[in-house]
Every structure is written in structure tokens, then in C-alpha cells.
Design a protein around this nucleic acid. Structure first.
Length: 276
DNA sequence: ACCTCCCTGGCC
DNA sequence: GGCCAGGGAGGT
């Protein structure tokens, strides 16, 4: 599902086409996709006719900066993906929003479960919204170990839910949080404030490589293929996952069967021998 | 810091 | 035919 590596892979595919392109038309087929936009009509009105200046990302949020201080925000939720198509290309089910560009291309937001959203925000709306409360980006702004330690100190919550808290660190989701904890050798239920400096150093050292690996493989497409790259290809990171989705299968490091439990309503996979 | 809700394809 | 997956917002 779309977490930081999937969103970044999407961004890298779209950026060369979107940058400098002009939005010629906007078609919203599911109004629910605009539920974060105070006045839904603003989405089309603010995008149409404007040129895209850049395509950025913070955590799992994609942000296209347009002329006139408009930011086109896209969040893929858990089943969303962006497709880059010719306007004549056949349309797949659950194409909920279509943004047509000059140059004869379209960006299509496909999202069966509709947990994703799009919006066109002005600077004050951006500053007042949830995006302003995101923590540092896990890939590009990861705090040094001492910084992580300071932000974990005194926290009684388990470390895994802390890693999923976008206000603590932006970009990790359920898959990569489990992968990070495996690589760091830390059990997901450990109280966040109880980690030793050495463990925090391991955690810090694990985050970059885990995300970079996922990104290098084009992200993780699960069996349902909810996430795909903008050209329709599947990400190939699934077969490289160390623990996520591997309940009962041997740990790749020690052979002990991978365990699964539900932690705060999220499936959690870990090796009880490698992770303490 | 916790719980509930949203939504739908796919699976049992 | 019913249940599960789950990111983020909102509420308690």
C-alpha cells in the first residue's frame, strides 16, 4: 500500500511530465475525494489553467506547486494510485478524479476504497491543515539519533505505534514500520521511552536503508495490486520484505517462524528471536 | 492516549 | 453472506 517509498516512486515517475505542464481540465467523478476541501468547487477552479512548477512530497503527501500559490495535494490513502495516461487510454474502474494536462496527458486518481483525497489549497489553508502538523520526513529529514532520543524520551506508548504517528515521523506506514523494527532488532511492543541509546542508534540506522530498498524496487505492491506505479507496473518489493505478511514463514535471518499479532488494530509481524 | 469511523474488493 | 485490510480524522 502507499507509504513513503510508494509515494516517492510515484512522484519520481510523474515529476518530469507534471513539471511545466498546464492543467487544461479537471473532472471529479467522486465528490468524496474532495472531502478535505472546504469548498469542493475550489479544486477545479484553482487548478484549471495553471502551470505546475514542481512536484514535492512530505511523508505520504504529494504536493504539486502551481502558479498563484496553489498547492495541489494528493494523499493515496490505502488503495489509491496515480496513473499517467493518454486521454484515449481505456479507463479502469474507480477512476475518481482526472486532471488533464496540455501535452496530451492525463493524471488519473484511481482509488477503490476512497480513503485517499485530493485538494487545492492556498497558503493559509495549507498552514492550518493537518499537513502542517507532520513530523520530519523519514527519508529526507530524519533527525539524528540524539534528536530521535529526545522525542522518544518519556513516551510510554509502544515503539511501533510511535513510528506510525505521522506527527512524530512522516512517511512510515504499517509495512515499513515492521520492516524498520526488524532491521533494528527491536520488538514492536517495546515502550518507546525505554529504548537504550544503542537501540535508538539501530533504529535510526535502519530507517534510511529500509525506505531506500523499498524505493529501489518501485515500492510494495501487495497481492491485491491496489498500489501500482503510474505506468501500470507493479512495485517489486514484496518478495524482499523481511517480516511483513510472512506469518509462520522462517525468519530470513534465523529461521524462526515469523509471528503476527494485532497491535492497535494493525497487523504486526516480527521475529521474536531477532527482535528484543 | 485511546477508540471509532470511513469504504470496497477479495477472500473464506 | 460476512469479515478483513488500514491512514487519518475526529471524538472521548
Amino acid at each position: 500500500m502507499p507509504e513513503l517509498p510508494e509515494v516517492e516512486a510515484t512522484r519520481r515517475h510523474l515529476a518530469p511530465v507534471l513539471t511545466g505542464a498546464v492543467v487544461t481540465a479537471v473532472d471529479v467523478r467522486r465528490e468524496r475525494m474532495l472531502r478535505r476541501q472546504p469548498r469542493p468547487a475550489d479544486f477545479s477552479d484553482r487548478l484549471a489553467g495553471r502551470r505546475v512548477e514542481s512536484l514535492d512530497r512530505h511523508g505520504k503527501f504529494l504536493m504539486a506547486r502551481l502558479e498563484g500559490d496553489v498547492t495541489w495535494v494528493t494523499h493515496l490513502g490505502m488503495s489509491g494510485r496515480l496513473r499517467l495516461c493518454a486521454p484515449t487510454a481505456s479507463e479502469e474502474a474507480h477512476t475518481n478524479v482526472v486532471v488533464a494536462l496540455d501535452r496530451g496527458r492525463e493524471v488519473r486518481f484511481v482509488d477503490p476504497r476512497t480513503f485517499g483525497f485530493v485538494a487545492a489549497f492556498l497558503p493559509d489553508e495549507l498552514a492550518a491543515g493537518s499537513m502542517a502538523r507532520l513530523g520530519p520526513d523519514a527519508l529526507t529529514g530524519l533527525p539524528a539519533p540524539a534528536g530521535l532520543a529526545g522525542r522518544l524520551a518519556g513516551r510510554t506508548a509502544a515503539i511501533k505505534p510511535m513510528l506510525l504517528d505521522q506527527g512524530f515521523l512522516a512517511g512510515l506506514g504499517n509495512i515499513y514500520a515492521d520492516e524498520v523494527l526488524f532491521r533494528a532488532g527491536i520488538a514492536p511492543t517495546r515502550p518507546a521511552g525505554g529504548l537504550s541509546p544503542a537501540e535508538i542508534a539501530s533504529l535510526h540506522a535502519a530507517i534510511g536503508p529500509v525506505l531506500a530498498d523499498g524505493l529501489a524496487h518501485g515500492g510494495t505492491s501487495l497481492g491485491d495490486l491496489a498500489y501500482l506505479l503510474p505506468d501500470g507496473r507493479a512495485g517489486e518489493h514484496l518478495e524482499h520484505l523481511a517480516v511483513y505478511g510472512r506469518e509462520g514463514e522462517p525468519c530470513r535471518r534465523c529461521g524462526t517462524p515469523v509471528r503476527r499479532a494485532v497491535l492497535r488494530a494493525r497487523s504486526t509481524f516480527w521475529c521474536e528471536r531477532c527482535q528484543r
